[in-house]
Amino acid sequence: MTDNPALLVADSVNRCLALAETWLAWDGRPVLTDGANLWTPAKAARRIQDHLIDHLAEVEALLAGATPTPDAWHGRMVTLDADWARFTELDLAEARSRWPRLAQSYVNRYATVPDAWDVPRDPNWTLRQIAEHVAGVVWYAEQVGDLRFGDSARIR
């Protein structure tokens, strides 16, 4: 048996938190990526959390033999008014509390069903594929980046 694929999610969350620790230095200017996506620390934090929740709900539905409920989030294509808020010490504390608990939920859940990791679930992904996809959550954090040194690259 291989390592629990959800460990990739936990590693990714740790990287997200390491970047989020630098967002306290955010100067209020958004980062523009791919010529069309506007990013702020609060938006990245929202997307990280939404992504973790969405796919955990998907995993639970698949394991219960149910059809996953499609998400209705607007995702990264919109910037909400709340996304313009400062990213404060309390926001970081909330992320430090919430994100690792969500990641641990993946690890714990996957640990209970190792024989199910690679079972085909058409039209959905396998549990392993879901974990690999969710590990990509760090992409959201990377859009804001490391602001520890007053990152001047506002367009990425």
Rank of each mutant, 00 (worst) to 15 (best):
L32W: 09
D50C: 02
E58Q: 10
I48Y: 00
R15Q: 15
T79D: 03
D27M: 08
L32P: 00
R46E: 04
A57K: 14
V13W: 03
A36R: 15
A45M: 04
R76H: 11
A45V: 02
S12Q: 04
T33N: 13
L52M: 05
R47Q: 15
A44L: 06
E60C: 10
W73M: 08
P30N: 04
T67N: 01
A25L: 06
I53M: 09
T69V: 15
P41L: 13
A25E: 08
W73R: 15
I53T: 13
W39K: 10
G75L: 09
L63Y: 08
E21M: 01
G28W: 09
E58P: 00
N14R: 14
V9M: 01
W39T: 12
L8V: 03
A72I: 11
P70N: 13
D11T: 08
V9T: 01
H74K: 14
D11R: 12
R29W: 04
G65R: 07
A10F: 01
L17M: 02
R29H: 08
A66W: 05
A66S: 12
T22W: 05
P41H: 14
D54P: 00
L8H: 04
A66G: 05
G28I: 05
R15P: 00
I53Y: 07
G28M: 05
R15W: 11
R76W: 12
I48K: 00
A66Q: 15
R15N: 12
A6F: 07
L38W: 13
A10H: 05
G75Y: 08
W73G: 11
G65Q: 08
T22Y: 04
R46F: 10
T79C: 06
R46A: 06
L62I: 10
T22R: 03
R47G: 00
E58T: 14
R76P: 02
A25W: 03
L38R: 11
H74M: 12
T67E: 08
W26N: 03
P30F: 07
D34L: 15
A45F: 07
V59Q: 02
D50N: 08
V31Y: 11
R15K: 15
I53N: 07
P5T: 07
D81F: 07
H74W: 12
L32Y: 08
A42C: 13
H55L: 06
L24V: 12
V31L: 06
V59G: 01
D27K: 07
W39L: 11
